[in-house]
Design a protein around this nucleic acid. Structure first.
Lengths: 144, 144
DNA sequence: TATTGTTATACTCTATAACTATA
DNA sequence: TATAGTTATAGAGTATAACAATA
């Protein structure tokens, strides 16, 4: 599975290295906006889901424990980028929705992340990036 | 509902998710051996490099700061899995080399990691895994 | 002066368990 | 009782700065 050329060619090792390189770069690009890669992802999910995404759904889709979502949403909520609205149908759920400010910050964040990504993905064609996306998706959801 | 082509299909996001899924699984597989994915990588590099790898080289190849290598090597050294030998040619360098015990533990670790990987990569052909390796390598070393 | 390894510190991320409120 | 969110805590990972030994 690994080890044609040893640990340096191990897919798990390369995944970790590539993820680290990109995340570091994205964190730097987002720092002026007061975002990190995690809070950025939460903001985008809040923008994309209508009429909002529950914290449980966020935890599931981000691969995190629900307890880790709390602080991320707290931060965005305190900055008026998202709101926590109790779901009328089930008051245990809290629907996370982006505010107008949230959408505006997302637009700026998307531009910065796209620039950061460009330097890392420039040697890959759009078709290759599609293949890459598909394969990563299969690794993440291998058991479904 | 989620938008398609949104953050869930972002290559950086998928890299982070896939890396997390695999690392979690590998950490669990290595736990009985007292290894984690980081110390496992150090052990493998120590096994593969002749006549040893310096801590600076380890930091470079693993994408870490040299200060982070110290504790990793300390741990392996205290368990007699690797040795720190001053390089006669330049006594600032310390060559990290695996002991016989280190090589033995590596063999067992390799088996466990291969099993852990199998469940995540089973839907990908050997050719696809080669493509994946190549693309990840290009992302990591895009600026070289 | 420059480089290798080291220590120290602060912050972020990860993993678990236990609690509350709603159902 | 079961589920969603929350709090708390300990451990692992990340990022910098400064220092001693060696070149």
């Amino acid at each position: 599975m690994a080890a044609n050329g040893g640990i340096a060619d191990d897919v798990g090792f390369l995944l970790s290295r590539a993820s680290g390189v990109v995340a570091r770069s994205v964190n730097k690009a987002l720092a002026p906006l007061g975002l990190r890669v995690r809070s950025y992802s939460v903001l985008l999910f809040a923008c994309e889901w209508t009429p909002g995404i529950t914290q449980r759904q966020l935890a599931s889709v981000m691969g995190l424990d629900p307890s880790q979502i709390v602080a991320l949403v707290d931060d965005l909520e305190q900055r008026d980028l998202v709101t926590r609205m109790p779901d009328p149908a089930d008051r245990r759920n809290k629907l996370i929705t982006a505010t107008d400010e949230g959408y505006q910050l997302r637009d700026e964040a998307l531009r910065r992340v796209e620039d950061a990504h460009a330097s890392h993905f420039e040697h890959l064609s759009p078709a290759q990036l599609d293949d890459l996306r598909r394969m990563l998706h299969q690794i993440v959801f291998a058991d479904e």
